[in-house]
Simulated assay, not measured.
Amino acid sequence: MSNVSISTFNAWVTIEGQTCPVFALKHINRRSAMCWIPSQEGKKFSVNWSNSFREKPVHAELSIDGVVCSTHYMLDLLDFPDDPSAIGISYATTSDFTRRDFVFSAIQVTDDDAYLYTLDSPPTFGTIQLELWEADIQQIERAPFQHRYGSDVLEGQTIHEMSKKAGSHHVTFGGEYVVPRATVNMVTGIRKGDAPLASFTFNYRPFDILRAGGIIPPSPSQTIVVKSEPVDDRIRDLEAQIALLRAQKAEPSRPSRQKNDFKTHWGHDSRSGKTVQVIDLTDL
């Protein structure tokens, strides 16, 4: 399974163009779902979602490791039939014409005691959350994109080497690059309701950690398969073993030689001319 569905919405993660499988999918309620995905160090990724019907405008909010990285709108199909029904978010904007991509990165560890506080209060990481809200649209203006400044950024994190989360990944913003300034629908609106229409949570960890924790099942080559033998074959094998034991029991055993168990034979005494019994001591 690679995508998560809630009502008419679908969400999935792609890592450098390849759809990422999901594991341990759990629908918490009819509007909320949670799953696990394997992160890949140094790889860029995109969070994608679609709405099959687009009955109403939707406000989307993407948070990664507790930081809001993107907010945008998907407009309704009736008034905006040419707009896309699927959106992918792979970057955060840093100005009107610059971006930084989302990248899975290794968490830096240190033995510096100054970072001991991270044992009790580690930085927030390991979670990608997409919330989709019904929107009340107030104004739409076709205009060149305008970046809203003041957002938080995702930079490298350092934790103490004794932390339970050592060896995990977190998300950082990649290097900044320039793109042409696009003309878009600059939408002004507010989200409606007390809860989102759909909430998708993708928990991420390195593949090996998810497998060790039982989230990802072992591969077939790692699974020990015990073949069940037919009952008749097992009976025949046991009978053959019993017959062999009985044969060994019935075989006469060679008596052990006692201390006085000598070999004897009859010989001729040349001096007396008589036949005498000879005791053979060569085996002693």
Results as ranks from 00 to 15, higher is better:
3 N>W: 04
3 N>H: 05
8 T>G: 02
10 N>A: 12
10 N>I: 05
10 N>Y: 00
11 A>M: 08
12 W>K: 07
14 T>D: 15
15 I>E: 12
16 E>W: 08
17 G>W: 04
17 G>L: 10
20 C>H: 00
22 V>S: 10
23 F>M: 12
24 A>V: 01
24 A>T: 04
26 K>V: 14
27 H>F: 12
27 H>T: 14
28 I>H: 13
35 C>W: 04
36 W>S: 12
39 S>C: 08
39 S>F: 04
43 K>Q: 15
44 K>T: 14
44 K>A: 15
47 V>L: 15
47 V>E: 11
49 W>E: 07
50 S>A: 15
53 F>R: 13
54 R>D: 10
54 R>Q: 15
55 E>N: 14
56 K>T: 13
57 P>C: 13
57 P>W: 09
73 Y>L: 10
74 M>N: 03
81 P>S: 10
82 D>R: 13
85 S>H: 14
90 S>R: 10
92 A>S: 15
97 F>L: 11
103 V>H: 03
104 F>K: 04
106 A>N: 08
106 A>V: 06
107 I>P: 03
107 I>W: 00
109 V>F: 02
110 T>V: 05
114 A>T: 01
114 A>Q: 01
115 Y>G: 02
117 Y>A: 07
122 P>N: 01
122 P>T: 02
123 P>F: 05
126 G>P: 06
128 I>Y: 05
129 Q>K: 09
131 E>L: 09
133 W>A: 04
135 A>T: 02
136 D>Q: 06
142 R>A: 05
143 A>H: 11
146 Q>M: 05
147 H>T: 05
148 R>T: 15
148 R>H: 13
148 R>N: 12
148 R>Y: 09
153 V>S: 15
153 V>N: 08
154 L>W: 05
156 G>E: 14
156 G>N: 13
159 I>T: 06
162 M>S: 15
171 V>I: 10
172 T>W: 01
173 F>C: 00
173 F>D: 01
174 G>V: 06
174 G>I: 06
176 E>A: 12
178 V>R: 10
179 V>Y: 08
180 P>R: 03
185 N>M: 03
185 N>S: 04
186 M>T: 07
187 V>P: 07
188 T>M: 03
189 G>S: 07
190 I>Y: 09
190 I>W: 01
191 R>Q: 09
195 A>Q: 11
195 A>T: 08
197 L>G: 04
198 A>L: 08
198 A>W: 03
201 T>Q: 11
203 N>L: 14
205 R>V: 01
205 R>D: 02
206 P>G: 01
209 I>R: 08
209 I>V: 12
210 L>R: 01
211 R>H: 04
214 G>Q: 05
215 I>H: 00
216 I>V: 08
217 P>Q: 07
219 S>D: 07
219 S>N: 07
219 S>R: 09
220 P>H: 02
224 I>N: 02
225 V>W: 00
226 V>M: 11
233 D>G: 01
235 I>N: 06
240 A>Q: 11
241 Q>F: 00
242 I>A: 07
246 R>Q: 06
249 K>S: 08
249 K>N: 09
249 K>R: 11
249 K>A: 11
251 E>Y: 06
256 S>N: 12
257 R>G: 07
258 Q>Y: 06
260 N>L: 14
266 W>S: 02
269 D>N: 15
271 R>I: 07
271 R>D: 09
272 S>F: 04
274 K>I: 00
274 K>T: 07
275 T>H: 00
278 V>H: 09
278 V>M: 10
